[in-house]
Design a protein around this nucleic acid. Structure first.
Lengths: 226, 226
DNA sequence: CGCTGTGTTGAATGCCGTCAACGTCGGTGG
DNA sequence: CCACCGACGTTGACGGCATTCAACACAGCG
C-alpha cells in the first residue's frame, strides 16, 4: 500500500518490511499538534493520510504557515539536519494518520536502507529550494500574485476535482491564506471576492474552489513591476 | 591551517589528507561567477578566503541575494540535495580562494569521511532554517526592521573592527542591501541616511560601518505591528 | 438564543515604491 | 593632468497598494 510512494521506489520488500517493523502508526485528530515548535525532536514522521499545517510562531505571537504536508510526504525530519528541536509546529488540518520512527533509530535505519537517507536529503533539498523561491516571490511580487500562486500551489498539491472545478481538499480559512502569503485576511477576502466576480474561483466557508486555473495563472504571472 | 574549521572538527589527520588530496584549489577574481544558476552542477566548494554572493535571478530579470558565503563555509552543495543543477549563481564579492571537489567523488568521500556528510547536512539544515526565518521576517516585519536585521547579520558574520565601529568586510552597495531585504535602493538609502543622522551607522561608497549595534538592535526588534 | 469564529465590505491612513533630478566618487583614456 | 563617463548615492515629490479601523452579516454550536 505504501510501496508506491516516491520515497520508497527502488526498495526491496525486505527493506520495506524492515522499516515498517520499526515504525509506529498513530492517528491525530483534526486541530491537534503532532509536535510543537522548539520542542525536543524525538521522532520523524511519514504522513499516510490527511493534511498537515506547518506553522511558525514569532516572538510577537504572529503565525506564519511555512507549508502544508500532504499524504506520502516526510515531516519532522529534524534529525536529518542535525537538529535537536523542531523548528516549527505541525498541526493536523484534518484527521490524519502518520507513521513515526524514533530518532535513535535513524542511524540504524539509514545504514540498512540507504534510499531512506537519500530520499530524505532530497526532500530537504526540495524544501530549501521551495523556501528560497518563496523569498524571491515575496521580494518581487505583489500581494495579488502571491495569493494567486499560493492558491495554484494548493490546488496542484491538494486539489480534488468536483463538478464546479478543483477544490482544495481540506478546510482553509482566509486567515490561513493570509498567513501563507504574508498579508491580511482582509486583503485575501477582497481578492477572492473580486476573483469570484470574474468567475475564476468560488468561495465558501473554509472552502476554496478554483474554477479557472488558467485564468488564475495569468494573474499569478502578470507582473506590474518593471 | 584549515583543520580548525567547524566542518572538520573531529576528523583524523589521515581523513583530512584524504579530502585535501582530492580537492582542487582555485582563485576567483572579484565579480566573477564561480557557477551559474541552472548550470550543470559538477562540483561542490569550500570557501577558504573571501566573500561570495549567492544570487537568484527571476524570469523578469530581477535579482535577489539569497545569502553571503563567508570563509570556512561550504557552498554549491547541490549534490547533497540530489540536484543536478545549481539553484542560484555564486559571484565572488572580493577576490576569493576556494577548494572544490567533483561531484562524482561525493559517494567515495562521504563513505570514507562520514563527518563530511553529517557536516554538509547540518549546513543544509541551517540554511533551510535561516531561509524560513527570512520568510517569517518578510511576512511580519516592516522594511526598516528587515534592513536593520540584515545589517546586524552582515556585521555578525563578516564584521571587522575598526576605530569607528564594525565595518562590513566587503564592498556592498545600497542596491545589494535592497536585494537582500526585498526593497529598493531608494528606501535603503533613506534609512541609512536617517541612521547616520542618529549616529547608529556610518556610510560610504560601497561601505557600511555600524557604530552602535545595540541601537540598531532596538530598531530591528521594535515592532510597530500588533 | 447568545456566542464565537468566519467572512465581507467601506473608508481612511500611511508606508514605501516610483519618478525625477542632482551630486559624488573613481577609473579611464587622451 | 584633466576631461569624461559610468556606477553609486542622495533627496524631494507624488501616488498607489495594502494595511488598519470599523461595522455588519452569517453559520455553527452549545
Amino acid at each position: 500500500m505504501i510501496a508506491g510512494l516516491p520515497l520508497f521506489t527502488g526498495m526491496r520488500n525486505e527493506e520495506l518490511d524492515f522499516l515498517l517493523a520499526r515504525a509506529r502508526s498513530a492517528r491525530y485528530p483534526k486541530d491537534t499538534a503532532i509536535f510543537d515548535q522548539d520542542g525536543k525532536a524525538d521522532a520523524f514522521f511519514l504522513l499516510l493520510d490527511g493534511h498537515i499545517r506547518v506553522v511558525r510562531l514569532t516572538p510577537e505571537g504572529e503565525q506564519v504557515i511555512a507549508r502544508y504536508i500532504n499524504a506520502g510526504e516526510l515531516f519532522g525530519i529534524a534529525v536529518a539536519m542535525g537538529r535537536t528541536t523542531y523548528p516549527a509546529s505541525a498541526i493536523a488540518a484534518v484527521d490524519c494518520v502518520a507513521l513515526s520512527w524514533p530518532n535513535e533509530a535513524w542511524p540504524e535505519l539509514t545504514a540498512r536502507v540507504p534510499q531512506l537517507a537519500s530520499g530524505t536529503y532530497r526532500t530537504i533539498g526540495q524544501r530549501l529550494q521551495e523556501t528560497q523561491d518563496k523569498v524571491v516571490q515575496m521580494s518581487t511580487e505583489q500581494v495579488e500574485q502571491r495569493v494567486a500562486h499560493a492558491l495554484l500551489r494548493l490546488v496542484q498539491q491538494a486539489g480534488r476535482k468536483t463538478g464546479e472545478g478543483i477544490e482544495i481538499d481540506f478546510p482553509i480559512t482566509r486567515q490561513d491564506i493570509a498567513e501563507m502569503t504574508g498579508t491580511t485576511l482582509h486583503t485575501v477576502s477582497r481578492l477572492l471576492s473580486a476573483w469570484e466576480e470574474k468567475g475564476l474561483v468560488r468561495g465558501g466557508r473554509q472552502k476554496v474552489i478554483v474554477t479557472d486555473p488558467h485564468g488564475l495563472m495569468l494573474i499569478a504571472e502578470h507582473r506590474r513591476k518593471r
